[in-house]
Design a protein around this nucleic acid. Structure first.
Lengths: 343, 343
DNA sequence: CTATCTTGAGACAACGTTATCTCAACGCTA
DNA sequence: TAGCGTTGAGATAACGTTGTCTCAAGATAG
């Protein structure tokens, strides 16, 4: 491995000068720059990020701490973030918080110790107590992903309340009066907002709110299946179900299959999160689709902007999701509302 | 931040001793150990991985370079690897090679510069020319994931040939004589082996090999859809299709839907890779399922073992996938063959 | 009673950068 | 011609560890 010292002697200049040429951190005579460039070329020198970091500079790396990596919609975030980060020459350190405050704090520790320039975090319920204070104390540049918090921190995610209301209103229009919700993990803003939207939708349609029609699916497959079964076991069960994320959609569908209920004939189903094959299901799923790639890319851009200027005011960015109208809601007219395409 | 120096003075010992206590790299008097431990406790000292790395020690980090992060089955690998790595106190640096040799080489550079202790790589076609020689020159501990190469390197993945043959034989037993294959990206061992298995299956069943029945889907959704359409456009089209990975399965299904072909009535479909919702499709998909979590975990274990003892002979580990018998193959008896469960 | 081994622990030079001083040389102004 | 800004670039101290030497003191052997 060649070091800056070797490049320096090769070019007949000091180490200092080589460093300044590389980082463009002070003016250097054009001719000298050329000599250094040539020496770098000849020696095949490549900078040493570790040494750089130790000496106090940036590491050109960012940490990504999320929950349940294998979760279908989180995956899209990862891919988008990796791609955007690498576009700007940053490397990604990845960790799973499992939505547990302790694991999350440990992850935050781990990543800050490794001197990531900044952190993108999908905060767990409980983050405000553990990981977030820690990160604030370290003054680690931070962007919150997917879940919002009432804090002065950069945040990106999607609009939740209005779309949830829209889902309810849509089902009500088709004639459903008892609409069940399989909600996400308690304490997540996404969960709270989607529930709030659900209630707002009911209210707008003049439907009563029956608490027995909301069950927590903990944002996961298995618990969502159980939640759906609970909803269907009550005295006057719902005729339509809303699943609040893609993992739970799978769970709910398993529950419906298990009971031999036909969608949308016997029960309607709509959901949050689209996935590549959601229009391959029979019936094709009516969903609210988040622009996951854009959200992920925006998270990286927010973080880099904050690195540029640490004192700018915090920004909270909400993307509007898309209502993709297919068949599982049981409407007569189907097809994607955006395009009006018939099917 | 507290440094070892502060701990040392707090404990009334030298920095050297603190270091040795921490790393258990030489014997230290029990009483002294206790004093150091107490001092660490009091000061809240935590080690500095960057400084450690610069001084020549391990970074406790491993690099993961794969293609198409968002690819359904790759995701399971990521999750498994992250979980296993973190179990052993290692952090994951993640990069996408996009199955392009240049990107892959760049990724390998990036990760070795950051002094990962080792690298887990899903080699692209072309890795043998670029990334692999580079890594060998750096003598970076390496584990190949998913795709095998005739090299003295640790490798983990799944059995491909026999299962592909099994798929063919199964279809032949049901009576199919023209079986099409939507194959993966050229140059990947998985692709070659699955094609070889396909041919072997044909041979065993006494079926002729028609080259027009094999089309490349490039391991991706879009190209697979095109490939399926090409196969179905020939004079005497196949009555059964095999998709060689999950992304391509989606593509093939889109093609079939586009043509209004009913599965398995008008055409049978079987595939490599299971996913959480493959038994929610109508008809439920008959697939070869890889034990992705085990493969990912094994990759980490292989890497750590090599770090322990760099000179042990290379190991190539193949896991046996599971044949999950559902309905898309068009058999009469359905259900999971392993359990014999009826549906 | 001296030579040698054992146990325990400190000094200090790396590791490869960055960043802060410092300084020389030159041209310009007063 | 003394004084001063400007341009260009070197010396060197961090950064926080690890690992190699080195060394003292007590125990053991001859």
């Amino acid at each position: 491995m060649t070091t800056m010292a070797e490049v320096a002697s090769e070019a007949g200049v000091s180490i200092t000068t080589v460093s300044h040429v590389l980082n463009q951190t002070r003016h250097v005579n054009a001719e000298t720059v050329e000599r250094v460039r040539a020496a770098i070329e000849r020696t095949g020198y490549e900078p040493h990020p570790i040494a750089r970091a130790l000496a106090g500079a940036r590491t050109q790396s960012i940490g990504l701490a999320i929950s349940e990596i294998a979760n279908p919609y989180m995956v899209d975030f990862i891919a988008a973030i990796e791609s955007e980060a690498s576009r700007y020459g940053h490397t990604l350190l990845l960790g799973d918080t499992h939505d547990e405050p302790e694991k999350e704090l440990q992850m935050a520790r781990e990543l800050t110790h490794r001197r990531v320039d900044g952190l993108i975090l999908a905060p767990s319920p409980g983050a405000e107590r553990d990981a977030l204070p820690y990160l604030a104390a370290q003054s680690t540049p931070l962007v919150l992903l997917d879940r919002f918090l009432p804090l002065e921190v950069d945040q990106v995610g999607t609009e939740n309340k209005a779309p949830a209301a829209e889902l309810v209103e849509h089902l009500a229009e088709v004639g459903h009066r008892r609409i069940g919700l399989v909600a996400g993990l308690e304490g997540l803003s996404t969960t709270e907002e989607r529930i709030a939207g659900y209630l707002q939708g009911l209210h707008r349609c003049g439907l009563p709110h029956d608490p027995r029609l909301v069950a927590s699916g903990a944002s996961q497959h298995g618990p969502a299946m159980a939640a759906a079964n609970r909803l269907l076991d009550i005295e006057d069960p719902p005729t339509a179900l809303i699943a609040a994320n893609s993992a739970m959609t799978i769970g709910v569908m398993h529950a419906l299959r298990g009971r031999g209920l036909e969608v949308p004939g016997e029960i309607a189903l709509v959901a949050f999160d689209d996935f590549e094959w959601s229009d391959l299901f029979r019936p094709r799923l009516t969903v609210i689709a988040q622009p996951t790639r854009e959200i992920g890319a925006e998270a990286v851009r927010l973080l880099l902007a904050r690195l540029e200027d640490p004192d700018q005011p915090a920004r909270k960015i909400r993307f509007d999701p898309t209502f993709i109208h297919r068949e599982s809601c049981g409407c007569h007219q189907s097809g994607n509302l955006r395009t009006g395409r018939e099917t």
